[in-house]
Design a protein around this nucleic acid. Sequence first.
DNA 1: CCTATTGCGGATAAAATATATCCGTGATAG
DNA 2: CTATCACGGATATATTTTATCCGCAATAGG
Lengths: 163, 163
Amino acid sequence: MKISSTVEWAIHCCSLLAGLPKETSLTGKELAEFHGVPHPYLAKALQTLSHDGILNTVSGPKGGYQLAKKPNKVSLLDIVLSIEGNDPCFECDEIRRKGPTALEKSPSYKRPCLIASAMWNAEKVWRDELAKVKLSDLLEQVKSKVDPRQLKKAQKWIEQRKA
Amino acid sequence: MKISSTVEWAIHCCSLLAGLPKETSLTGKELAEFHGVPHPYLAKALQTLSHDGILNTVSGPKGGYQLAKKPNKVSLLDIVLSIEGNDPCFECDEIRRKGPTALEKSPSYKRPCLIASAMWNAEKVWRDELAKVKLSDLLEQVKSKVDPRQLKKAQKWIEQRKA
DNA sequence: CCTATTGCGGATAAAATATATCCGTGATAG
DNA sequence: CTATCACGGATATATTTTATCCGCAATAGG
Ligand code: SF4
Ligand code: SF4
């Protein structure tokens, strides 16, 4: 029950791109440097996000990544599922069909078992909660909760590369 | 973001023990055989559950495991946290403090960041949902949703060992 | 007391994932 | 034509999960 740190990187990248002026893009290398994470590995995540239609990519010089949709159309769930895959976190091994007391065949086996249902239900509320949070919500909060000095610094850093 | 299969085994064991008649206990070996899972490994999980006060253990011949509390006092969350540990599933690497745009020091770093808060909030609703489901709830549903033939078979299997 | 059964705890091994890197290819701006 | 950049596959390393083993302590029953 642990979420890979790639997810954190991906969310950071997406929020950063979401806050960029129109038509501005960042390269994989720049995104890696900005966040202080290894470039070749982050590239894989960006590739996945691109593949899932969350990011747009442009090849060649002046290329890079942009958010593919409006920030209010991308939720944290979208990003998490893209990186982690959308398999349920609880995988049922069908234990009820193993061991000496299992039946050869039973109609009740066609329905998901009680334990699995409960776990999947919990995962559903988790997903619903993440789906509520859009990148636009994060941007909103950034303005009021992040140190203005850091925002300034970040803005300068980006302008410098895009000049 | 995957829950280890040990959790599934643990829940199965606990629900089985929860449905047992008073003063009946099962050994680790029996629990493993019943569910068709490797005994030495399951033993670790049982040990953990015992350590966390979910199961009672008795050493020596005629020993084994019993549920330590009333079935309505043990939730799925209790079991999940016992086996998986209660670290949050989203671990923040404090990326905001890395990279070229980070500040040496800022009061805003003392508060959890927006991304982390959102993830933790989602985990909270997940936990709350699991906390709602008690072993007694599962037992209730077992009666109506599990094939009666399997219940009978299980009951017989247990009586045979305890005779 | 003696013995057989059972859980406990630590050490260890094997398998599966997550993390990280590398390189050849194709796209494209200048 | 060239330098830049994303893509995709192959590969290496680290960490976690899964699984096993063994000596010890507890205890029921003879
Ligand atoms: S479906 Fe339920 S009973 Fe069956 S194996 Fe999964 S968790 Fe166990
Ligand atoms: S998620 Fe928030 S707290 Fe965690 S690293 Fe990113 S900025 Fe920092």
